[in-house]
Design a protein around this nucleic acid. Structure first.
Lengths: 108, 108
DNA sequence: AATTATCATCGTATATTTGCGATGAATTTT
DNA sequence: AAAATTCATCGCAAATATACGATGATAATT
């Protein structure tokens, strides 16, 4: 876009938008489920159960990391990723607040 | 992307991804909050409280419509948009399921 | 009937996302 | 030490998203 106006909105909106964007691709949702299911994962283990190339999975992991939904370490050759419980709790809180703010039945 | 592989994931992942993508921009979150606050809105009323051009707001409304998060009618000159309560309830359900699937404390 | 107000859509420009192969770095295995 | 494994990053191509002004269509006002 010519100019990005995202910064002109409230902190709450921006924070939720960042989390939502991280969840805006089925691959990333599937990755998060896998991580939770196995408690933790090597990148290769995820690639095995995903219809995507290794480089693509690595990129999705990077985005999840940037959004704070997962945490991970790279010990030389091997990697290790897992859910970030703290930020997931934060996500849950923000979602609850959002759903409360948007609850209504009246319509046009 | 050269090829879109989204279709190769599960229905649940895809459905949540569609909702999440709709929420992946602060402007759309702000719009949803406005709609809930006022119960319903003309496009122009939203433009007034938003740092965006009318055409841009209209485009965001279209995306929210496509995702099913809002419903609306166009009576000639005037429009009327509001929250889609049914799909919001569905969103709430899917989110709860997702959060359950991703709950864990064990980490690497 | 002419003007004004409201809004969707089109066209355009730029930025971001998605996906992959190739490459290189670090570790492990042989 | 050589070969194999594991993974992030780079570079590329194509698709989407973001934002706006201009335009046209419809309805309400004058």
């Amino acid at each position: 876009m010519a100019i990005h106006k995202k910064a002109e909105f409230g902190m709450e909106e921006q924070e939720l938008a960042v989390f939502a964007k991280a969840l805006a691709h089925p691959a990333r949702i599937a990755i998060l489920k896998q991580l939770a299911k196995r408690d933790s994962c090597l990148c290769g283990e995820i690639v095995e159960v995903m219809p995507l190339a290794q480089s693509t999975v690595s990129q999705h992991l990077k985005e999840l990391l940037a959004a704070g939904l997962i945490q991970g370490t790279l010990d030389g050759a091997k990697s290790c990723y897992c859910i970030n419980p703290v930020n997931f709790q934060r996500l849950e809180m923000i979602l609850a607040s959002f759903l409360k703010d948007t609850s209504t039945n009246k319509c046009c």
